[in-house]
């Protein structure tokens, strides 16, 4: 008697969550796959009475043919491949350094966590302001009022100013700013996880290394990193997954034009592509692109897991 009463009760507890999940999670999965494979699908056409959509990979082909798609793919991959190693390495160095000091550690930890609690777009605007050149560029005689704080620092050290993100700026200048911003944003989480991992390493291994007269760099390379490898793997995998979904950082810096004034959309990423397709009411294409993105993420994650099997020691 108790058994069946419990069962029935359990389902009541679960009902709200399951109902919501069915509508907003399960159905979308099915539907997205469905739409991806219905050629040229769009709601507008569907409701307009055209019920005959063929199943096929037409959407995928269309997506691949889009010039924008190649740009987005390129941007996404580049950003990922560049920012993840840099931010992981920096986070590791910071975490190791923090682990080695006692005074000021709490304060520094708090400081390093700050970027996490910020609004991605809001601080993106601050970065834009830092790299921004105030004045009008793109004319024959640029009228510059101030070259922005970053350029000021460069000029202070004897260099010449760079057009980072304004009208007429170069692709790599834009990317540079983006990379700095994304790494800045990615550090807190990585530092937190890596520092937590470091603090759980048994101190006796370090004492043994001291007895073995191990130089500091060797302690880091042969002892700390291997013992920390599960955490490092976790941080890299989540870093890649997050990296492939970069979008808001770009909006933060460039605004919704996703690029400098003379080259809008230059820095668009896969996620941006999906939303663009959606905005143009090409749901089929958007779904196809989303599936492609998912496929890439899955692939990269699997590769990462394979690599960690070999390199990670538990």
């Amino acid at each position: 008697m108790v058994e069946s009463k419990q069962q029935w009760k359990a389902w009541i507890y679960l009902a709200p969550a399951i109902a919501l999940l069915l509508v907003f999670t399960v159905w979308p999965i099915i539907n997205t796959v469905r739409m991806a494979f219905l050629e040229d699908y769009s709601i507008a056409l569907a409701s307009g009475g055209e019920a005959s959509f063929r199943f096929g990979v037409g959407n995928f082909v269309k997506v691949a043919e889009y010039q924008d798609f190649v740009t987005c793919l390129k941007n996404t991959v580049l950003l990922c491949v560049i920012t993840v190693p840099i931010s992981t390495l920096l986070a590791l160095l910071v975490a190791v350094a923090l682990n080695n000091i006692k005074p000021l550690r709490k304060t520094l930890q708090t400081i390093f966590f700050l970027p996490y609690v910020t609004n991605s777009i809001a601080i993106g605007m601050v970065f834009a302001a830092m790299f921004n050149i105030v004045g009008s560029l793109g004319t024959r005689r640029p009228l510059i009022q101030t070259v922005g704080i970053v350029n000021n620092v460069i000029e202070f050290f004897g260099g010449s100013y760079v057009n980072w993100i304004n009208n007429g700026s170069g692709y790599w200048a834009n990317m540079f700013v983006l990379i700095i911003y994304i790494v800045w944003n990615a550090l807190p989480f990585k530092i937190l996880i890596l520092l937590g991992g470091l603090q759980s390493v048994n101190k006796q291994y370090y004492e043994a290394a001291k007895v073995d007269s191990t130089p500091r760099w060797r302690v880091l390379w042969r002892i700390t990193v291997p013992l920390l490898s599960p955490m490092i793997a976790y941080v890299v995998i989540t870093g890649f997954i997050g990296g492939f979904k970069e979008y808001t950082s770009i909006v933060g810096i460039f605004g919704e034009s996703l690029g400098p004034a003379h080259a809008p959309g230059r820095l668009n990423t896969m996620v941006g592509f999906i939303y663009d397709a959606l905005a143009q009411h090409h749901q089929g294409r958007a779904s196809a692109a989303a599936l492609i993105l998912f496929g890439i993420i899955l692939l990269v994650t699997l590769v990462n897991l394979q690599v960690s099997k070999k390199r990670v020691h538990y």
Partner: peptide, 18 residues
């Protein structure tokens, strides 16, 4: 410690597990 040239066997051995 690094410069003392001693050998130490820890109570819990402290063998590098990896």
């Amino acid at each position: 410690t690094e410069n003392r040239g001693i050998g130490l066997v820890f109570q819990n051995y402290a063998l590098y597990p990896h």
